[in-house]
Design a protein around this nucleic acid. Structure first.
Length: 579
RNA sequence: GCGCCCGUAGCUCAGCUGGAUAGAGCAACGGCCUUCUAAGCCGUGGGUCAUAGGUUCGAGUCCUAUCGGGCGCGCCA
C-alpha cells in the first residue's frame, strides 16, 4: 500500500486525458497542514506554467478527471492551484483491515528485484573499532535490512583494511611477543589499541625495528610463509574483536561478508597494466597516474589519481578499482552503495570516473558513494585519535548498557534480574543506534556521551516503550494470534494513526532511494507518538467501550505493534515485551 | 590557491524532485497517575532559516557573491 504512488498514478492518468504526457510531474506530497487534508497534488501549477494557462483552471480540469471518489472524502482546490485530498475514513479503514493481516504488513512485492552490493563498516584491522566506525556500520546495516525486506538481492561487502604498511610493524612486534611466550588471546592481543601503540613506539624509538618492519611488509606481500602466518594470527584476532562488536551492536555482518583489501591483490597488477595499455594511465614523476580532465581546476590542470607508486607499490585507489570490477562484473551488481566518511568523497569520485572509462563499472551499475560527516569532539574541534581521545566502540556500548541499567533501577518493577539485564542491554544499545541513525547530517557531527545515551524524547527507548505499552494491552485483552476484526475509524486520533500506519511503504521507498535510515527513524517516532496520543485519548479495555469499538482499536494496536516491531527490526533495534 | 560538505529556536536536529502560516526533541514554565505501564500525555513561551543580491505565481530548498566552520587536493587508507 503506497497512497502517494496511487495518487501519483491517478493524477498522471488525469493529466493524460488532458493530453499532457511529457514532462508532467504529479508532485504528490503529504499535506503540510491538517487543514490541507492528508495529501496534496501540486503538479497543476508547474503544468500550467508550461502550457501558459491559468493554474487554478487547470487544477479544476484535473480535479474533474481525477478518479479518486472511492478513496477521498473531499478534494479541494486551494491557493494558486493546490489540490488538497482528504482521505475517506471508510476507505482508510478497509485498506488498514487488509494490511493488518498481510504478512508483508501492506508493503507490495518488489516488481523489479535488483542486485545491490553494499560496502559498509570496513574497519581497519590494525586497530580496534572506535566510535568513528559506528555510522558506516549501522547505517549500512539498516539500509541492507530494508533492501532485503523489499526484496532486492543484497550482497554485503565488508572491505576490511588488512593490507596496509602498518602490518609489517604489527607482525614484527607479534613475533617478539610469541618468542617471549606471552599468551596471545588473553594478554598480547587482548587490547589491539595498546598493541598498536607498543608497536608504533618501537617503530619510532627502537633501532632496527623500523627496518625489520619494512622488510616484513615486503615479505608479507610477496607471500613469505612465516610472515603470512603471523599476519593471519593477527588478522584472525582482530576479526574476532570486530565480530564481538557486531554481535553487541546487533549488526548482520558475518565472516562470509568479509572481502578485505588483500583479496584484491592478484587483480592489481593486471588492472594497472590495462590502464597503461589503454593510455588511461601515464607515467609521471616515477608513478603511474590517471589525469582526470573532468575534475580539472579553473586553469585546466587535471586532477591526478595515482594508481601505482614509484617503486611499484599499489594504493587503495588501485584496490577500489579492483573492487569496482569485481562487484560490477562478477557479482553483477545493479547498484553499489558505499558508506564512508565524507573525506573520501573526492577519492570515490575519481574511482568512478576511472572505472567507467576502463569499463570496470558496467553502464547498468549505479555507483553511490554515501558520505557522512567527520566526527568532532564535544568542543567542536576534530576528534583526535592519536592523543588519547579515541573512544572504543566496545566501551561506548558497555557504558550504554550500564547507564540503561541505572535508569531501570529507579523504576519500580516486578521484573527479574535476568529480565532487567536483557532490557538494559536492548535499551542501551538501541539508544546508541537510534541516536546515530536518526541523523541525516552529511556535515560534521559532534560526539557526545549524553546525546548518545539519552533515554528521553525521540529515542529508541521511547519507541520500545510504545511497543511495550501496546503489547501490555494485547496481553491483557488475551487476543488470539489470528485475532481479526473490522477497523472502524471514528476519533481524530484514530484517523491520524491510520494514515500514518499506511505510510510505511512510502517511507521505506525513500529510505532505499536515498540510503537514509533517518527517514525511517522519523517515521517510527511519529508513529509511536501518534499511538501514544491514541492510547491516551481512546480507551480500549476500559469500562463502557462498545465491543466493536474495542475490537477495532485492538486491531489498530496489533498493527501498530507489528509495524513498530518491523520498523525497529529494519533499523537493527530490538524490542521487548515489558520494560 | 583550488575543490567538496555545511550554516534552521538557548542546545541537538527534521524539513520528501521549489509549494501555502518553517516543525520535533532537550532545556524553561504550567497542568495530568485510587494507573488499559508517567522512559508517558496535554498546554505555554521561544525564529532577520549566516549575510546581501538574483531567478518566479511561489525560495530554508535553485543561482551568484561575501562571512563563518569542517574536510580534501601525486606516491597513507
Amino acid at each position: 500500500m503506497n497512497i502517494k504512488h496511487l495518487l501519483t498514478e491517478k493524477t498522471l492518468a488525469a493529466f493524460q486525458q488532458l493530453g499532457l504526457t511529457d514532462n508532467v510531474n504529479a508532485a504528490v506530497t503529504q499535506s503540510t497542514r491538517p487543514e490541507f487534508g492528508d495529501y496534496q497534488i501540486n503538479g497543476a501549477m508547474a503544468a500550467a506554467k508550461l502550457l501558459k494557462t491559468n493554474p487554478r483552471q487547470l487544477a479544476q480540469q484535473l480535479l474533474e478527471l481525477l478518479d479518486i471518489a472511492d478513496m477521498a472524502e473531499s478534494v479541494e482546490i486551494a491557493g494558486p492551484g493546490f489540490i488538497n485530498v482528504k482521505l475517506d475514513k471508510n476507505w482508510l479503514a478497509s485498506q488498514l483491515t487488509t494490511a493488518a493481516t498481510d504478512s508483508r504488513l501492506g508493503v507490495a512485492v518488489n516488481p523489479t528485484p535488483q542486485t545491490v552490493v553494499v560496502d559498509y563498516s570496513a574497519p581497519n584491522l590494525a586497530k580496534e573499532m572506535h566510535v568513528g566506525h559506528l555510522r558506516s556500520t549501522i547505517i549500512g546495516d539498516a539500509v541492507v535490512r530494508t533492501l532485503e525486506f523489499w526484496g532486492d538481492t543484497v550482497i554485503r561487502q565488508n572491505h576490511m583494511g588488512d593490507w596496509g604498511t602498518q602490518f609489517g610493524m604489527l607482525i614484527a612486534h607479534l613475533e617478539d611477543k610469541i618468542a617471549a611466550g606471552v599468551d596471545l588471546e588473553t594478554v598480547a592481543l587482548a587490547d589491539l589499541e595498546d598493541f598498536y601503540r607498543e608497536a608504533k613506539k618501537r617503530f619510532d624509538d627502537e633501532s632496527g625495528f623500523a627496518d625489520k618492519s619494512r622488510d616484513y611488509v615486503v615479505k608479507l606481500q610477496s607471500g613469505d610463509a612465516h610472515c603470512q602466518k603471523l599476519w593471519q594470527m593477527f588478522i584472525d584476532t582482530s576479526i574476532k574483536h570486530s565480530n564481538d562488536v557486531y554481535q553487541k551492536l546487533n549488526v548482520t555482518l558475518t565472516n562470509a561478508d568479509i572481502k578485505p583489501e588483500s583479496a584484491y591483490n592478484a587483480m592489481l597488477q593486471p588492472i594497472v597494466a590495462e590502464l597503461v595499455a589503454k593510455d588511461i594511465a601515464v607515467e609521471s614523476q616515477g608513478a603511474l597516474v590517471v589525469f582526470l580532465q573532468e575534475l580539472a581546476d579553473k586553469e585546466g590542470t587535471p586532477s591526478p589519481f595515482i594508481i601505482q607508486k614509484t617503486g611499484g607499490g599499489f594504493l587503495y585507489s588501485t584496490t577500489d578499482l579492483a573492487a569496482c570490477q569485481y562487484r560490477s562484473h562478477e557479482l553483477a551488481a545493479d547498484r553499489i552503495i558505499i558508506f564512508t566518511d565524507a573525506r573520501q568523497a573526492l577519492h570515490f569520485n575519481q574511482v568512478e570516473l576511472v572505472a567507467r572509462k576502463a569499463g570496470y563499472l558496467a553502464e547498468r551499475t549505479a555507483y553511490d558513494h554515501c558520505p557522512f560527516g567527520t566526527m568532532m569532539g564535544e568542543d567542536g574541534k576534530p576528534f583526535k585519535t592519536r592523543t588519547g581521545g579515541t573512544v572504543k566502540l566496545a566501551e561506548l556500548l558497555e557504558e550504554a548498557v550500564v547507564r540503561a541499567n541505572a535508569v531501570l533501577q529507579d523504576k519500580v518493577t516486578d521484573l527479574s534480574a535476568t529480565e532487567m539485564a536483557e532490557i538494559a542491554r536492548k535499551v542501551g544499545i538501541g539508544a546508541v543506534k537510534y541516536a546515530d541513525l536518526s541523523k541525516n547530517r552529511t556535515s560534521d557531527y559532534i560526539f557526545s556521551w549524553d546525546a548518545m545515551l539519552s533515554f528521553e524524547g525521540a529515542t529508541a527507548p521511547y519507541l520500545q516503550y510504545a511497543y511495550t505499552r501496546v503489547r501490555s494491552i494485547l496481553r491483557k485483552a488475551e487476543v488470539a494470534a489470528d485475532f481479526h476484526a473490522e477497523i472502524v475509524i471514528g476519533a481524530e486520533q484514530e484517523k491520524l494513526l491510520a494514515v500514518k500506519l499506511l505510510r510505511f511503504e512510502e517511507t521505506l521507498q525513500q529510505v532505499m532511494k536515498e540510503a537514509q535510515p533517518n527517514l525511517l527513524c522519523n517515521y517510527l517516532y511519529e508513529l509511536a507518538s501518534l499511538y501514544m496520543t491514541f492510547y491516551e485519548a481512546c480507551p480500549i479495555l476500559k469500562e463502557g467501550v462498545e465491543p466493536a469499538t474495542r475490537d477495532s482499536r485492538l486491531m489498530l494496536s496489533i498493527f501498530s505493534a507489528k509495524l513498530l516491531h518491523k520498523g525497529l527490526d529494519l533499523l537493527g533495534i530490538e524490542v521487548m515485551e515489558r520494560m
